[in-house]
Amino acid sequence: MSEERYTEEHEWVRLEGDIAVCGISNYAQEQLGDVVFVELPEVGRVVAANDEIAVVESVKAASDIYAPVAGEVVEVNSGVEDDPEIVNRDALGEGWLFKIKLDDTSEASKLMDESSYEDYIAGLDD
């Protein structure tokens, strides 16, 4: 299993072969606050990178989640639909949102690694 890679939009990707497991970062779930609802894509949908693919809602915000990589949605985490709190509890683990079968496995490597992402969010704090 590879390390997580991050987008500037606070999604993470973890490669399992040619499958990218995707979710939102810990920073993102903290900023959102208590997640109350997750809307996931249909399995089989083909997406380009940066397509709006899912929605994560807290009480006061609804955030569109963008596909971090291009490919076909092959699985979604119905567990977070039933119990959205999982996203707060374990954003990088059990709180994953969807899996994308990659068109191009090298795509994920263009994203930030953990330490670059940490630098990136440190720069966001006002």
């Binding site: 939009e9 903290e30 208590d34 963008y66």
Partner: peptide, 13 residues
């Protein structure tokens, strides 16, 4: 993900 405008407001007391 798109803009998060909660500004850290807790919604569970």
């Amino acid at each position: 993900m798109s803009a998060m405008n909660t500004q850290g407001r807790p919604t569970k007391p």
